[in-house]
Amino acid sequence: MPLTALSPAETARTVAKLRLTVGVEEEFLLLDPETWLNAPRADAARAALDPAMHERSEIEFRRSMMEMVTPVCGDLAELRRRLRENRIAAGAAAEAVGARLVAVAATPVGEPDLEVVDKPRFHAIARHYGPIAYDPALCGFHVHVGVPDRELAVQVCNAIRPWLPVVQALTANSPFHAGRDSGHASWRTIALERWPSCGPSPYLRSLDDYERVVAELVASGVMLDASMVLWWARPSLRWPTVEIRVGDVCPTAAETAVIAGLARALVSTAVAGIAAGFEVVQPPEHLLRAAHWNAAHAGVGGTLLDLRTHAARPAWELVEDLVALVGPALDRHGDRSLVEDGLFKLRGYGTGAQRQREAGSLHQAMAALADATVTE
């Protein structure tokens, strides 16, 4: 019987027995190595990739951005290898055209060329949304976790909402804007709030409800079309996955693999909860948005909002709660050691935002980050 013929709970009971697949899309900036201004050389850099790596690259909205995509992976060690392959190849291609590939989530200095890439869809987006489409480039990373049923994917997105601010805080990697410290750990998140379809996904009762809401938002003009669902978690439009989009691009492949493993475990835990009929926590929308804003502002350097209790708590306490919650899923996928070791290191040396601020100057921060992008 096709999974789509089953109820979400019945499907979840089948999926909960599986080791879920994972894949990652990462967005990077091309920066001038002297000024650290954005360098509009993506077309030339993509042309410098060998054919196999060119297949793993995607055209992005801005001329200073490169996106690299991993194959579907079964374990985190494989995912980390693929991430490093992508970064090394893209880094070499960037250097071949006089730029540095940098895993930083917001334009740190400035973007002299604000034109979008010359594609009909990108021009349509720019016409529809106006000046916000010409904001300096922003880079995230998207984790795709295999969930072979869109009805179940909607329920998973409901279940993981209270924990996505914690994931977001762990990835904070964009403190600089216009050459200065923005005061936020993730300026990318703050800047993306100008886009009306970004942010936490609404609570949706079913796939039919999802499709109704999207159709209404398209009719309202908030979304240009159904592909403009830019929520922090969504059923993927292209693949049989839940796509988690909340994170800043991470400084290193190792950190990306850790966060991807945590995200996979969170999805797997949600599936198990749906199979068991557990009640889903539904935080008030104002607190959910507040939790994301605070995660972007503070990262893991302060407190985060516990959306189960509506109380502020030390960030790392909530990270520990999340790891405890998803522990059985980490064990089932063989990921516990890699994820726990990675989080221990992250707690010791700080998020990307913390490390950039400690580098001495913005230029020193970008040089160190460019090196780390392709070596760690």
Rank of each mutant, 00 (worst) to 15 (best):
A254R: 09
D371L: 11
L307R: 15
P2Q: 09
H177D: 07
V339D: 09
A353E: 00
E26F: 13
G277A: 04
G261I: 09
V24W: 08
G91R: 04
S361V: 12
V147K: 09
A253H: 02
V145F: 00
A5V: 06
A48Y: 00
L204T: 03
R289P: 06
A47K: 10
A48T: 07
A137G: 01
P202H: 02
R13Y: 05
T171N: 10
D135K: 04
V166L: 10
I244P: 00
N38L: 14
A5W: 09
V166F: 15
S182I: 02
F344H: 09
S361N: 14
Q168E: 12
S220M: 00
E25L: 10
P131F: 00
T11W: 06
L346H: 04
V97I: 10
P240H: 05
I190G: 01
L204H: 04
A370L: 08
V147S: 01
W36K: 08
A77V: 14
G342F: 15
P120L: 01
V271R: 05
L304F: 06
L164S: 10
P196S: 00
V167Q: 09
I132P: 11
W239N: 12
A44V: 05
E317K: 12
L338D: 05
I274Y: 15
L207Y: 13
A126P: 14
L304E: 01
M65T: 11
G273N: 05
P175E: 03
V280N: 03
D321R: 13
R264W: 09
E317V: 11
H144P: 07
T107G: 05
H363I: 02
I190R: 08
D248V: 03
E243Q: 03
D50H: 07
R188F: 07
V280E: 12
Q168T: 15
P40L: 08
R56A: 11
A276D: 11
D208N: 07
V281F: 13
S64E: 02
L217M: 08
N173K: 14
A106Y: 04
V145S: 07
A42R: 04
P235E: 11
L343H: 10
P108L: 01
A367C: 01
R81T: 07
R19W: 13
G91Q: 03
L29R: 03
R188E: 01
A48D: 12
V280F: 06
G91T: 05
S220L: 03
A290T: 13
R46N: 02
W163P: 12
L29S: 01
V249M: 04
A124V: 11
A90H: 06
G98K: 05
P131H: 09
E60Y: 15
G179H: 07
E358M: 10
N158R: 14
A372Q: 08
D118T: 14
L76H: 00
R81D: 15
G221P: 10
T303W: 14
S57M: 08
A324R: 13
D43L: 02
W232T: 10
A226T: 11
K17I: 03
P165N: 08
V323G: 04
G140Y: 15
D331Q: 08
A370V: 02
L152R: 14
G74P: 06
A126M: 12
E243K: 07
D181G: 05
D371S: 04
W293M: 01
V326R: 06
T309I: 08
C250V: 11
